[in-house]
């Protein structure tokens, strides 16, 4: 833990308690996503979970990430989720029957996750979740410079990946039309 001045430490404590409160809310809402019976309620809790993530980014002074998380996840992807769920209008009758194979796969998947979490906890060291090494890291200018110089290739490749997904979606949509 880096040595902090007194005022800074006070500020840190105050921010730390805020962090723990928001982290508690994140986990609470994430659990409610899984445990709520109604899929639309699940999505609404997921929106709240993403909102708490936005607050985490703001605490880290990552304004750009915060607002992009806000726009992309809360404003676009979750609206689409809600849109689809409202169209499907799921209820208890339409819930698919889970076979033993699916249940078995779920158990294995859960165990793998537990293993990963346990292993990562073992090597994890305590850090201050509210102080960044470089406070300007998350601002637009810093992020833009890093993305277009140091990480240009991965950045362009990921854009290509998104483009492929888009073309694939259009292809699937038009394929149906010609067959019908």
């Amino acid at each position: 833990m880096p040595i902090l001045k007194k005022g800074q430490r006070y500020f840190c404590n105050y921010k730390m308690s805020l962090f723990y409160f928001i982290a508690f809310l994140s986990i609470l809402f994430a659990l409610l996503v899984i445990f709520s019976k109604n899929p639309v309620h699940s999505v609404l809790y997921l929106i709240l979970t993403f909102f708490t993530f936005t607050i985490h980014y703001v605490l880290l002074n990552a304004q750009f990430l915060a607002i992009v998380n806000f726009i992309v996840y809360m404003g676009a992807i979750m609206v689409l989720f809600l849109f689809v769920l409202m169209l499907l209008n799921l209820n208890n009758d339409s819930e698919p029957v889970k076979t033993n194979l699916v249940k078995f796969a779920a158990i294995i998947g859960g165990c793998c996750l537990l293993l990963t979490v346990a292993a990562s906890l073992k090597v994890a060291s305590p850090s201050i979740p509210v102080v960044l090494a470089n406070p300007n890291l998350g601002l637009v200018k810093g992020l833009g410079k890093v993305l277009f110089t140091q990480f240009l290739l991965p950045f362009e490749i990921s854009s290509l990946l998104l483009f492929t997904a888009m073309v694939g979606a259009v292809l699937l949509a038009t394929k149906d039309k010609t067959n019908a």
Binding site: Q63, I67, V68, F70, I71, M74, G75, L139, V140
Partner: peptide
């Protein structure tokens, strides 16, 4: 310093 994006976020909300 992300004012325009903030507005955009509010619109999408």
């Amino acid at each position: 310093n992300v004012g325009v994006l903030y507005l955009f976020g509010v619109v999408s909300l």
